[in-house]
Design a protein around this nucleic acid. Sequence first.
RNA 1: GGCGAGGUGGCUGAGAGGCCGAAGGCGCCGCACUCGAAAUGCGGUAUACUCGAAAGGGUAUCGUGAGUUCGAAUCUCACCCUCGCCGCCA
Length: 438
Amino acid sequence: MVDIKFIRENQDELKEAIKNKGIALDLDELLAVDAKRVELQLAVEQLRESRNKLNDNITKAKGDVERQSIIRKGKEVKEKLADLEPKFSGVSLRFDELMARVPTIPSSDTPVGRSDADNVEVYRWGEPKKFNFEPKDHIALGKSLDILDFDKGAKVGGFRGYYVKNDGVLLAMGIMMYAIKKMVSKGYRPMIPPTLVKSFALFGSGYFKGLEYDAGIDEIYEVATSDKEVTGEVSKDKKFLVGTAEPSLLAYYSGDILKEEDLPLKVCGYSQCYRSEIGSYGKETKGLYRVHEFMKVEQVVLTTADVDRANKLQDEMTAISGEMHEELGLPYRRIQICTGDMSAGKYRAFDLEAWLPGMKKWGETGSASNFLDWQARRLNIRYTDKNGEKKYVYLLNNTALPSPRIFIAILENYQTKDGHVKVPKVLREYVGKKEIGD
RNA sequence: GGCGAGGUGGCUGAGAGGCCGAAGGCGCCGCACUCGAAAUGCGGUAUACUCGAAAGGGUAUCGUGAGUUCGAAUCUCACCCUCGCCGCCA
C-alpha cells in the first residue's frame, strides 16, 4: 500500500513505475475515485452531524409537538443518508481495490526491464565446477544413493511429490539446522511460525493482490476444510497454506506499534512451504527443483523509515545467505531483479543463484526484497520515533536457505566419479559422515 | 463435540438506552514544592480519517458484522476470539 497523499503528489513517477513493472492499473481512475470518495465522505459526515445534533435536541424538546417535528426533520436527513451512504461505501470499496495495486516506485539502481531475462548479474563467487567425468543430475544421484524417491512421491503425493530418505533426511535437516544456527549467530530471533494462516497475512505481505483470495492467479493453496461447519455453510474465515514463513513472520507484528530503540528487529523462521505452482505449469516437471512443499529458513527485518539504512540491511541479509553458500562451497551469483520481474510492492530485489552442474544451470536459491513501507501499511505495523511520531516500519525479507535447492546443489556439486556425494564440512556434524554412499 | 464465563482506552476496571469517547485507580507527560529526588498537590493524557493558515471543528471507533430505536458500549441476532471444566485425539 502506498500513501494516498504521496500518490496525489507523485503521479508521473508512479505512472512510470506502473509501466515499468507492467501493472494493470489506471492511475487516473484511482485519482478520480479518490476525489469522489473525499467528496462523498464530506457530504456523508455533514449529514451525520445534523442527524446527531437533532438527536441531541430531542432530549431537550418540550412536549410532543416539538418532539415530533424534530423526528420529522431527522427523517429527511436519514433519507438523504440512506441514499449517500451506499454510494460512499461503493466508492470506498473500489478505492481500496485500486489502492492495493499501487506499486512502490523501484529504487534508482533497479534495472528497467520486461522479464527475468533482463535481470542483471551483479556479483559472482566461484565458477561453475569442472568435472573430469560427466556429472549426473540430482535425480539420478538421489535414486542411486537411495536418498530421494520420486516414484513413490508421485504415487502418494501426486505430481511433484517426493520422499527424502536415509542420509538424505540427515542432509536436508542438517541444511536447516545449519541455517538456523547461522541466523541466530547473526542476531536473528528464531521462530517456528504457523503455516496455516488467515487471508490477511497473505494480503499483508502482498501474496494476495486484492483483499479477496483470487483463485487461479495466486499460487497459494486454500484449505478446503473449514475449522467450523455450521449447518453445512462454509465458514467465512478461510485458511491458507503459506508459501514461505515471511507472511507469518510479518503478520506476527501486524497492528503493533514498536519502539524505535528496538529496531531493526531481526527474525528468522523455519517452516514448511507450500506452493501450488499453477503459474509454472510445465516448468521443471522433474526432480526436486520445483516442488509443492519444502522446508525453508527465512529471514525478516523490521526497520525504521530510512531508505539508506533499509538498503544497507538488505545487503547485509543477502551477504549472510552468500556467506552460507560460500561455507557450503557452492558457486553462486547475485542478480539484481529488473522492474518487469519485480512484484508491485518491492522497492529493490536481488536473487541468489547457485550453480547446479547436473541440471547445467544457475538455480534460484534465495530472494532478498526491500519493500519499504508497502507491506507495513497493509499490515499496519508502526513504530514511534524519537519525536514521538508514529511511522510505518520498513520491511525486508530474504531467504536464509531453502532445503531442496541447496540439497540439489550439494548433490550435484559434491558428487564423485563413483556416484557418491561428499558432505560439505559445515554439515558433517548433522549427517554424521564425510561421504554419502560409503 | 458438550457446558459455562467473558472481550470497554497503554494497563486495571466501572458503566446496563440520550447527561458516555467513556468514572475511579495505575502508568505516562507538564507544572508547583525541593539543593536534587521521593512523597504530595494541580493540570493534561485514545486512535484513524477529515475541514482549517492556526485556534478550533466534524465523522467514526467500547471484539467484528447486521438489526431494533428519533438515539446503542448498553437491547436482539450472527460470527470471531480468550479463559475455565468435561469428552475425544496426539
